[in-house]
Design a protein around this nucleic acid. Structure first.
Lengths: 349, 349
DNA sequence: TTGTAAGCGTTATCAT
DNA sequence: ATGATAACGCTTACAA
C-alpha cells in the first residue's frame, strides 16, 4: 500500500505508531520496542524517557504488526456451538477470565453453523486468524471441520466432550452417571429411565455414546434397561419437557426414577411433571448432571461439575503450552460430586 | 525477523503463504491476491489455476498480514462483564452469529475485571487489538475504561445500557417498566415494590437510574413509592432471592406486587416466596423484565425483550458502518411486550 | 491481464 | 546501550 498518508483508524485521529514514540523520545524504534516491552538492553534513563513518551502519546503496539513479526498472535480461539447452553457459557466465561488476565484475546467461533455441507463457517475466519491455540467446546463439530482444525497444527484442547487423540478436560461421564445411578439405587430404585440431550449429532458420535454409557453403567450396577425408557431430546429445559411429556404419553410401564444427562433437561422434566400432576419426588425421582446455577433453587438432585473452572484450567494449560512450556497440555479428568437435594427420595413401596 | 527459515506455526507443518501459492500456480503474489479474493483483473484460466493451487495447498490469507496491509482487522470487539448473565450471553450469541456469517471474528473482552483502579484489563489487549468496531454490552465500565475506549476512535455501539452520546440499541427501560406497572395497576395493585439489580455500579450510574426511572413511572401512573419498598441486589436469581428475603424480614407494611428489573431476580423471588409460604400470585404478584428462557416454565409474568436479536442488530449496524456504509450506526429502541402469565393476578380484597 | 515493488508496524539480528 | 535494517505476509498503485 503505497503512500497513503494520514492513516486513520476509521474515524479518529491517526493511530500512534512506534515511530511516533521513537521520534518523541529521540531514540530508534528498536529501542522503543525494547523499552516498552521491558526487555533488557535499555538504560534506565532511556527507558523512562521512552515510557513517558509512549504513555503520553497513548501508544499501544499493534497486535497485527507484532503478530506478523513474531508469528505469535496472543489469541486463543474458542469454538462453541451457536446457541450454546449453560455449560459452554460458563466454560467460555472461565476461559475468558484467564485469557484476559494473561493478556490474551479470546476469539469466539461458532461451530455447526447453519451451513449444511462441509464448508463450516470455520473455514476462512478461523483458519485465517491463526490463533495460537484452540479450545474446542463442543461435539457439534463435523468431521470435516475437525479435520480442518487439526491441519492447523496448533495446540488444541477439547472441553466437555472428548475428541480422539487430543488433550481433554472434563468429567468422566461414565463415573458421573454411575454416581447418579448408585444414588438412585441406594434409594431403592431399580426402574431407571434415561433422558439425554441429542442435538446436533455430527458424526463424532457423542450422542449415542451417552446412551451406550448409560447401558453399561446400568448393567455394571446390576440393573436392566428398556429401550422405551431411553428418550432423547434437545439439551435444553424445553427439550427435557418435551421428552418427558412424550415419554409419559407412551403406554407401558413407567420407571420410578429418571436420570437426565443435564440439569437443564432435568428441570424441564420437573416442570412438566408438575403440570401432569406427577409428584416429585413422591411419584418419581429425578436427577441431573451439572449442578446448574438454578438447580439449588429447584431442589434438583444432581451430580455437580464446574465448567467455569474447567474453562479456566483448559485456558491455562493452553497458554502454558503456547508459551513454550511443552507438555503443559494434557488430559485432566475434572471432579464431580453428588449433591442430593429434594428431587430424589426413597422408593415408595 | 531475519533468516528464520522453516517457519512453523507451533507444532505443525510450515504455514502456507501467498508466495507458496504463487509459485505453485506459476504467477505473482499480486495475482494470487486478486484471484483468491475474487477481484476483477484476473483471467478465468489464471483464476482457476490459482484457486486450485490455493485449495490444494490449503492456503488461507494471514489475517495479521492482510490486516496490517489494509488497516482493517475484520474483528469486532465485544466488551461484556465478567460473569455475565442471561441477557449478555444471548446478545453475544446473536452478535456472534452475524459476525461469523459475515466472516468477521468476534473478540471477547471482560470489563470490570478484578482490577480495582483505573487500569482496567482492557488496556493492553483491547487497545492493541485494533478492532474495527466495538459492541459495549454493559454498564460495568469504569469512567476511565470508557474514556480509553472512546480514544480508540472506532465505531462503537452500546447494547442494553445507554452510554451518553453514542449509538445504542435496547428497549426503552421506562416504557418497559411502565408497561409492567400498568399491568399491575390493571389488576388492582397500587402497593408496588421494586427489586432491582445493582451489581458493579461503576460511575456511569445505571443502577441508580433504575430506581429513579421506577419512581418516575410510578408517579406518572399516579402511584406512590416507599423507599423501604425499593431493594437492590445482585442481578441474579440468588440476588433476587436474597433481596426478597431481606425485604420480607423487614418490619412494616408489605406490597401486594413486586416488579423486578430482571426475570432472573424475579425467579429468585418466586423461589424464596415459595420457601416462606408466600403464595404467588395469591398473596403476592411478581413481574419481571426480559422473558428469560425459563420464565415460561416458571409461569412468570414479564415484559419480554429479545437480546439475541438486539445483538444481531447491533452487530449488523456495526459491520455496515465499518464497511463504509456511513450512518448505518444509530440508536434503535428495541421492542418489548407484556407477557402475562401466572405470577400476577388480580388483587385479592 | 499480469508483474513489480513499496508500504503496513513490529521484532530481532547484527553492527556499532 | 543503541541504531540500522531485513523480514514477517499481504495489498495495491503503477508499470508493463
Amino acid at each position: 500500500m503505497p503512500p497513503t498518508d494520514e492513516r486513520t483508524p476509521r474515524g479518529g485521529r491517526p493511530a500512534v505508531s512506534i515511530e511516533d514514540v521513537a521520534v518523541a523520545a529521540g531514540v530508534s524504534t528498536a529501542t522503543v520496542s525494547r523499552a516498552v516491552r521491558g526487555l533488557p538492553r535499555v538504560s534506565p534513563a532511556t527507558r523512562d524517557r521512552v515510557q513517558e513518551a509512549a504513555s503520553r502519546l497513548g501508544y499501544v503496539a499493534s497486535s497485527f504488526a507484532s503478530g506478523l513479526a513474531t508469528g505469535r498472535t496472543r489469541t486463543i480461539g474458542v469454538v462453541a456451538p451457536a446457541g450454546c447452553g449453560w455449560f459452554s457459557s460458563k466454560a467460555i466465561d472461565g476461559a475468558a477470565r484467564v485469557l484476559n488476565e494473561r493478556n490474551y484475546t479470546l476469539s469466539l467461533f461458532n461451530s455447526g453453523g447453519n451451513n449444511g455441507a462441509g464448508t463450516g463457517s470455520l473455514n476462512s475466519v478461523l483458519l485465517g486468524k491463526r490463533t495460537d491455540g484452540l479450545l474446542l467446546l463442543t461435539a457439534a463439530l463435523s468431521a470435516v471441520e475437525l479435520l480442518q482444525i487439526r491441519k492447523l497444527g496448533i495446540p488444541l484442547i477439547a472441553l466437555g466432550n472428548r475428541i480422539q487423540d487430543h488433550p481433554f478436560i472434563g468429567i468422566d461421564q461414565r463415573e458421573a452417571m454411575s454416581t447418579a445411578v448408585r444414588h438412585l439405587l441406594a434409594l431403592g430404585h431399580r426402574d431407571i429411565a434415561l433422558l439425554y440431550g441429542g442435538g446436533t449429532d455430527t458424526g463424532i458420535g457423542v450422542t449415542d455414546s451417552t446412551r451406550q454409557t448409560f447401558r453399561e453403567v446400568m448393567s455394571a450396577t446390576g440393573l436392566g434397561v428398556r429401550p422405551d425408557w431411553e428418550h432423547m431430546g434437545d439439551p435444553t429445559v424445553y427439550g427435557g419437557q418435551k421428552a418427558f411429556s412424550r415419554f409419559w404419553a407412551q403406554s407401558g410401564p413407567k420407571p420410578t426414577a429418571i436420570l437426565c444427562s443435564s440439569d437443564e433437561m432435568a428441570m424441564g422434566v420437573m416442570f412438566e411433571a408438575g403440570h401432569q400432576g406427577v409428584a416429585i419426588p413422591a411419584d418419581l425421582s429425578v436427577i441431573g448432571i451439572d449442578d446448574h446455577d438454578y438447580s439449588v433453587f429447584m431442589g434438583l438432585s444432581t451430580v455437580a461439575q464446574d465448567p467455569g473452572r474447567q474453562g479456566q484450567l483448559a485456558a491455562t494449560m493452553l497458554l502454558d503450552e503456547v508459551e513454550g512450556q511443552h507438555g503443559a497440555l494434557g488430559t485432566i479428568i475434572a471432579e464431580h460430586r453428588l449433591i442430593p437435594r429434594h428431587s430424589t427420595a426413597p422408593l415408595r413401596l
